[in-house]
Simulated assay, not measured.
Amino acid sequence: MSLKKKIGMGVATAALGLSLVGGGVFAYFSDTAESNNTFAAGTLDLNLNPEIVIDVKNIKPGDWMNRTFELKNDGSLDISKVLLSTDYTVTDAKGDNAEDFGKHIRVNFLRNIDKSGAIKPNDIIYSTTLHDLKGTAPDAVQKKIWSVFGENSGLKAGSKDTLKVQFEFVDDGDQNQFQGDSLQLKWIFDAKQTAGERK
Rank of each mutant, 00 (worst) to 15 (best):
A191F: 00
S153E: 04
K6S: 10
I105D: 06
V53N: 01
W146L: 10
P50E: 09
K199R: 07
E168T: 13
L46R: 02
L83C: 05
A93Y: 07
T162N: 04
M65W: 06
S159N: 12
K156A: 14
D132T: 08
W146V: 11
K115V: 05
V170Y: 02
G135S: 11
D172T: 15
E99K: 14
S182L: 07
D55F: 05
R106I: 07
G173E: 06
D132K: 08
K192R: 09
L71F: 01
D31M: 06
D100R: 09
A195T: 13
V21N: 06
K120N: 14
F178Q: 06
A98H: 05
N97P: 04
R198F: 05
I119P: 00
S153M: 05
L183I: 15
G23P: 01
R67I: 10
L83F: 03
G196D: 03
Q184M: 10
I59V: 15
I124W: 01
D92T: 13
D92M: 11
L77Y: 00
V141T: 02
T13K: 04
P50M: 09
T129N: 05
N73P: 04
G24N: 14
N36R: 13
T38R: 10
G75W: 00
K5T: 14
N36C: 03
G42L: 06
N108G: 12
A14L: 15
A12T: 11
A33Y: 02
I145M: 05
A12H: 03
A33M: 03
R106V: 12
A157Y: 04
Q142H: 07
T194V: 15
